[in-house]
Design a protein around this nucleic acid. Structure first.
Lengths: 346, 346
DNA sequence: ATGAAAGCGCTAACAC
DNA sequence: GTGTTAGCGCTTTCAT
């Protein structure tokens, strides 16, 4: 460990703003202004400073900058898991958008657990992030309180509640589920099962179940408790859930899944049961990740605007952070993608 | 934006160490020592300080802490992409390991581009990370120079070169590929094709090709240029590449793929060509991600110790950062996973 | 347009 | 075991 009390002796010591100022023959204030393009600096001066900085290989010290400016140029995002491609892609888009403005993204995961999410919010705040991105809109008031106490800009992704007091950027989970269910009903299906992610701490999953339920109700049908199985978002869990549904006396002719991973599991269950999709049974996913077309038959699913959500989250947050004005919420459209896993009911 | 020049007036101003010290009736040094459990502080005093800190909702200011201690308790990792589940999982394990020691992980992506990776290294260094994790061992000397100039601990994941001057934590890509190829040969296959990721900037992909090539040579065979197709790691690219191989006058009876995603693409190509796997052709993947068992038939593949690499990376880095001693390299085993996509040659 | 200088919040050396 | 205090590197106000 380098001894930081050895000013100019340590060759490993990173050059600081004073070194640059000295070499350029200006004050540290001018160096700061030049490099941050913040103030009025004569072009010639700026050039000299820039040259000096480059020559020394100067990089502003993050701590010093953060301390003095009270900004970190960092945004934190907390997603349920990195292992779901849909979040990975949204995060990627968010990161790219922020990077264009020299803002770094800090990614944390909650594993779908509210307590972990709140802990992660604390961690991010402790690190002085200038903005936060969260998934979903339903969480403990204490979580929102943390954010509000610091007055930090934050946006909620993946849902579009009607009258949220917060800035949301997402889509209508209820509506999308309602729509896809209606299309399934149009194919003549009447016995419909559903495999959902755990709805307790997941408003998106909850809303999707509600959407399916309502669409069925609109047609005089209902989603009874044994037509609905909740499980973790994993292939194996989806397979087990589907097995359970298929074991019923009246097995469903169509299974709606909370996401594509569960649907892939359902496909596997169908195969294991000797059922052909879509002839014997239809399977419908949600998300439209690459997996949806990797399996056979390819999954009918709902295309979620993951990339656009990521980009919009970045843009809205940046606007809020820089200009100080709270941006409006945004609702993006989804699209039902019809593929071979959905057939007409026999 | 709050005016930071208004000391005690702004109610939004976060409590600082001095506030805590005042409330606890001790000095700031004692507060620091208490909270960092670094020094000898009487237990009773520590209790008082802790209570005061909690009451005020005190969180150490990141910038101040970083500036004074010259540490950020942050580790940066640069992976090719978050969209490959194998990296996502390793990162998850790394994050968990680091979190146990209150170290935050900063994740960046390079999209398999060396220039981007170097830019990301710069970004991470500018943010004062205390350690760095990179994927692979082959990169421009300038990239290593950046790390060495700062004397920052860093480990290289995913490969296990024989005499690396750096700390590597990975597995033998060449050996794993050699092994799987030998097993395929044992099944009687003689016309073998390969779909690889782009080898130019990817030592793992390169080593795997070499391993396959060598195993074939060991049996008097060779991997001719038109038996090998390089492409991006995507399902569609894998499908196209497989189509190309299948279009040859002597189509291969087995296609070895650089990863499971490519293999899933090859399966799709086989189906599109009216070929049955494994009866008409075998397909072998690499990684053993969930996708490998989501497709049909399930993929024979190589299980990569992603989780163990992530954990080991965290442990080694922590040891290096804290104790200052450079840890040894580590080579982990892989395991060939036989599944239905590999059959005997006809 | 530029410089001087006052902090930002914290840690760690040193004194007691 | 605890207090005093000198910085860490930077931004920003206030002069000029």
């Amino acid at each position: 460990m380098a001894d930081k009390r050895t000013p100019s002796a340590d060759p490993r010591r990173a050059p600081n703003i004073e070194d640059v100022a000295r070499l350029a023959g200006v004050s540290t204030a001018t160096v700061s202004r030049s490099l941050n393009s913040s103030g009025r600096v004569r072009e010639a001066t700026r050039k000299i400073v820039e040259t000096a900085a480059r020559e020394l290989g100067y990089t502003p010290n993050f701590g010093g900058q953060a301390l003095a400016s009270n900004r970190t140029n960092t945004v934190g995002a907390i997603i349920p898991t990195m292992e779901n491609a849909i979040f990975a892609r949204a995060i990627q888009a968010l990161q790219e958008t922020l990077a264009e403005h020299k803002v770094t993204l800090l990614v944390a995961t909650s594993q779908y657990r509210p307590d972990r999410e709140e802990a992660q919010i604390r961690t991010l705040l402790a690190r002085g992030v200038d903005g936060v991105v969260l998934i979903g809109n339903r969480r403990a008031p204490s979580a929102y309180a943390l954010l509000n106490a610091r007055g930090i800009p934050f946006v909620l992704l993946w849902s579009a509640p009607a009258n949220s007091p917060f800035v949301t950027i997402g889509f209508d989970n209820f509506g999308a589920a309602h729509d896809l269910t209606t299309r399934i009903l149009e194919k003549g299906h009447r016995r419909i099962g559903m495999i959902s992610g755990l709805t307790a701490d997941n408003d998106r999953a909850f809303d999707r179940v509600q959407g399916v339920s309502q669409a069925l109700a609109d047609h005089g049908l209902s989603l009874s408790p044994h037509d609905l199985v909740e499980c973790r978002y994993s292939l194996k869990a989806g397979e087990n859930a589907a097995m359970q549904l298929l074991g019923a006396t009246q097995r469903p002719t169509a299974i709606i899944c909370g996401n594509d991973v569960l649907a892939a599991g359902a496909l596997r269950a169908a195969r294991a049961s000797g059922l052909t999709v879509p002839d014997d049974m239809s399977v419908i996913g949600f998300d439209d990740i690459e997996l949806a077309t990797a399996v056979f038959p390819p999954l009918a699913t709902v295309r979620v605007p993951h990339r656009r959500m990521g980009v919009a989250a970045g843009e809205h947050l940046l606007r809020w952070m820089v200009q100080g004005e709270r941006p409006p919420s945004l609702t993006l459209p989804t699209e039902f993608v019809e593929r071979a896993s959905l057939g007409v009911a026999k």
